[in-house]
């Protein structure tokens, strides 16, 4: 049951909401669908807004408390808007041994945000993660889907600037 008032007002329905409807329709009959639904929904919205979680809970017939429990359990899900570019700094063992902490420090300075924060212009979100499995290139960062390896602090400015 989604709100009809926008339609009555003659406004266009939100394309994101239409997509959410499609996702829900696709998974409604499958067992264990909550996580894929949340993953695909987050791809549409960029994060998981509260009203969207309410709708997922209603349509999948899973209590909101359970949905919230799952969302907060997994590192991948986010309850707040995120930046256009996600900068992930690897702090895995290999990167740690080869100076990953310094890379994180430099990026924090460069972007003016701390680990886990999003810049005010929503250009970057900075996250540290445990290992991205590119240990052969340590230290590494990932910006969106791109991996950048064999880093030194002085290379970072140029890499970050590529992402608008």
């Amino acid at each position: 049951m989604s709100c009809q008032c926008a339609v009555e007002d003659g406004l266009q329905p939100d394309p994101k909401e239409i997509k959410l409807g499609e996702i829900l329709a696709k998974y409604k009959q499958q067992k264990g669908a909550l996580i894929p639904v949340l993953q695909e929904t987050q791809e549409v919205y960029g994060y998981l807004p509260a009203e969207v979680l309410r709708r997922i809970s209603f349509e999948l017939k899973i209590p909101l408390s359970k949905v919230y429990g799952v969302v907060t359990f997994y590192a991948q899900f986010h309850l707040n808007p995120r930046g256009r570019n996600i900068v992930r700094v690897c702090l895995g063992t290999a990167c740690h041994v080869r100076g990953g902490a310094k890379i994180l420090e430099t990026i924090q300075k460069e972007l003016g945000i701390e680990d886990g924060q999003t810049s005010e212009d929503l250009r970057y979100t900075l996250e540290s993660i445990a290992c991205i499995g590119a240990c052969g290139l340590a230290p590494v960062i990932m910006v969106n889907e791109d991996t950048h390896g064999r880093l030194t602090p002085d290379k970072l400015g140029k890499i970050l600037a590529q992402y608008e």
Binding site: L91, A130, C131, G133, C135
Partner: peptide
């Protein structure tokens, strides 16, 4: 779910 930091053979 290869999560051990420092292992990437499964990948």
């Amino acid at each position: 779910d290869e999560g051990d930091p420092g292992a990437f053979m499964d990948r």
